[in-house]
Structures are given as C-alpha cells and as structure tokens.
Lab assay of single mutants.
Amino acid sequence: GGHPVTTQMVETVQNLAPNLHPEQIRYSLENTGSVEETVERYLRGDEFSFPP
C-alpha cells in the first residue's frame, strides 16, 4: 500500500463499519486508496488484516 490516508477517510469507514478496528481500516485504505472500495470489501465480508 502507498495511498495517503486521512483521519476523515478512516472516520467515514468507521461510521459504516463500526466493528472494524481503526488500524484495520487504515491498512485497507492504504491498499485500496478508496473509502468506497474499503466499504465494499467490508460488505462483501472480506477479511480485514492488521498492518504487519
């Protein structure tokens, strides 16, 4: 991942996926670069990993 992630982006995802840890959200956003894509992954039931 190398996309810039803002606190705003993390908070937006958190509102839609409250049971995800912020670190999981941030890591996913760094890989996708997209709030929409991260939320899609969540709704699909994809696994969210923590940063290594």
Rank of each mutant, 00 (worst) to 15 (best):
Gly2Tyr: 13
Gly2Pro: 15
His3Val: 10
His3Glu: 09
His3Asp: 08
Pro4Gly: 11
Pro4Gln: 13
Pro4Asp: 11
Val5Ser: 03
Val5Trp: 11
Val5Thr: 06
Thr6Arg: 04
Thr7Val: 13
Thr7Ile: 14
Gln8His: 11
Gln8Ile: 12
Met9Thr: 02
Val10Glu: 05
Val10Ala: 04
Val10Trp: 06
Glu11Cys: 12
Glu11Arg: 12
Glu11Phe: 10
Thr12Ser: 12
Thr12Lys: 13
Thr12Gly: 06
Val13Ser: 01
Val13Met: 04
Val13Phe: 01
Asn15Trp: 13
Asn15Gly: 12
Asn15His: 14
Leu16Cys: 10
Leu16Lys: 08
Leu16Trp: 10
Leu16Gln: 09
Leu16Pro: 00
Leu16Glu: 05
Ala17Asn: 03
Ala17Val: 09
Ala17Trp: 05
Pro18Thr: 08
Pro18Gly: 07
Asn19Cys: 14
Leu20Trp: 03
Leu20Gln: 02
Leu20Ala: 02
Leu20His: 01
His21Pro: 03
His21Phe: 07
His21Ala: 10
Pro22Leu: 10
Pro22Asp: 06
Pro22Val: 13
Pro22Arg: 10
Pro22Ile: 13
Pro22Cys: 08
Pro22Ser: 09
Glu23His: 09
Glu23Phe: 10
Glu23Tyr: 09
Glu23Leu: 15
Gln24Thr: 02
Gln24Phe: 02
Ile25Arg: 01
Ile25Ser: 00
Ile25Leu: 01
Arg26Asp: 02
Arg26Thr: 06
Arg26Val: 08
Tyr27Cys: 05
Tyr27Ala: 06
Ser28Tyr: 06
Ser28Leu: 05
Leu29Met: 02
Leu29Ile: 06
Leu29Tyr: 02
Glu30Gly: 07
Glu30Phe: 10
Glu30Lys: 07
Glu30Thr: 09
Asn31Met: 15
Asn31Glu: 15
Asn31Arg: 11
Asn31Trp: 13
Thr32Gln: 02
Thr32Arg: 00
Gly33Asn: 07
Gly33Met: 07
Gly33Tyr: 06
Ser34Val: 03
Ser34Lys: 04
Val35Met: 08
Val35Phe: 04
Val35Asn: 01
Val35Glu: 04
Glu36His: 11
Glu36Tyr: 11
Glu36Cys: 11
Glu37Arg: 09
Thr38Tyr: 01
Thr38Asp: 02
Thr38Gln: 00
Thr38Met: 02
Val39Cys: 05
Val39Thr: 06
Val39Gly: 02
Glu40Tyr: 14
Glu40Cys: 15
Arg41His: 09
Arg41Gln: 10
Arg41Leu: 09
Arg41Phe: 07
Tyr42Lys: 00
Leu43Gly: 04
Arg44Ala: 10
Arg44Ile: 05
Arg44Leu: 07
Gly45Ser: 03
Asp46Glu: 15
Asp46Thr: 07
Asp46Asn: 08
Asp46Phe: 12
Asp46Ser: 07
Glu47Pro: 12
Glu47His: 14
Glu47Trp: 13
Glu47Phe: 14
Phe48Ile: 04
Phe48Asp: 01
Phe48Gln: 00
Ser49Pro: 15
Ser49Gly: 11
Ser49Glu: 14
Phe50Ala: 03
Phe50Ile: 05
Phe50Cys: 08
Phe50Met: 08
Pro51Leu: 04
Pro51Val: 05
Pro51Glu: 04
